[in-house]
Design a protein around this nucleic acid. Structure first.
Length: 278
DNA sequence: CTCGGCCTGCTC
DNA sequence: GAGCAGGCCGAG
């Protein structure tokens, strides 16, 4: 579910709420989410620790503690909520529910819930050393100075794979997912099934700009809430109101009126305008 | 590089 | 009941 703008939105809310809070207790209901790390070690590392700050790398959240960090990846359906005992929002279940697999009890009566119906997410304790290894295969953050047009062009050059699959590759554009990839390709007028090696200079620059634009706009809109994205305060994002192609199959393109198509590219549902994208 | 698998829930 | 879903990993 969550791509870079959604994870960034969550990070910003958590960064407001969590620093200086102490973890009183940690409750893990689904050890499978640790992907092999020992639950005892996991809980021991958390209990009694004070949260320093919250960061994001690609689609990963990092909650920094003094000794090490709690890594959270939300997979397809992961959600993080803070304190949510009220019943104002009818469409949200009361927490904890059967999909709430991890709970952190913080001081000041606050609680953090991790909810993940499909269980594609992961939770792990990372030491500083683990961190380097863990993130070393990720490309440069697309919104940072480290992400350059030249580096991007290099990553696409000679590639047989479709541009869609290359943009989804976290070694090239970490944080990009299915929605923002389709939107960036629409903005830059490139067909999703175009081979990486076929892209030359003006198009690459345009795509590079489009990636930054969609990610920035996604963050400004606080994410895309198509079905179930909420920030930790249960707020929905608004980027779904700005989508041009994602989920718009059978609708007319509002730039040219051509019917938006949907097909599988790179094993993912892919949306594009056959006239605007060449 | 592409495919299947990992899971549950929702829509048709 | 089938097919689909915002992600990632490992096998071939």
């Amino acid at each position: 579910m969550p791509e870079l703008p959604e994870v960034e939105t969550i990070k910003r809310v958590l960064q407001e709420l969590l620093p200086c809070k102490r973890i009183i207790d940690s409750e893990l209901h689904k050890p499978k989410l640790l992907r092999g790390q020992a639950p005892d070690y996991f809980n021991t590392c958390l209990r009694g620790q004070t949260i320093l700050q919250v960061e994001r790398r690609a689609k990963y959240l990092l909650i920094r503690l003094k000794q090490n960090s709690l890594l959270i990846h939300l997979g397809m359906s992961g959600q993080v909520f803070i304190d949510y005992q009220n019943k104002k929002k009818k469409q949200l279940p009361d927490l904890p529910d059967k999909h709430t697999h991890f709970i952190l009890y913080l001081d000041k009566q606050q609680v953090l819930y991790y909810r993940d119906p499909r269980m594609f997410g992961r939770l792990q304790i990372l030491t500083a050393e683990d961190e380097l290894n863990y993130f070393k295969s990720l490309g440069p953050e697309p919104l940072s100075k480290a992400f350059t047009v030249d580096g991007f062009a290099q990553a696409l050059s000679g590639k047989e794979a479709s541009i869609k699959s290359l943009l989804l590759n976290q070694k090239i554009t970490p944080g990009m997912g299915n929605i923002y990839t389709d939107e960036a390709l629409f903005l830059s007028g490139i067909r999703p099934d175009k081979k990486g090696k076929m892209l030359k200079h003006p198009a690459i620059q345009k795509l590079y700009n489009a990636i930054k634009t969609v990610l920035k706009n996604g963050i400004r809109a606080k994410g895309t809430s198509i079905s179930d994205f909420y920030d930790p305060n249960k707020q929905k994002g608004k980027f779904q109101l700005q989508l041009h192609v994602y989920g718009k199959q059978e609708n007319p393109c509002h730039r040219c009126g051509t019917t938006i198509r949907k097909a599988v590219v790179a094993q993912r549902g892919t949306h594009w305008c056959p006239s605007c994208q060449k």
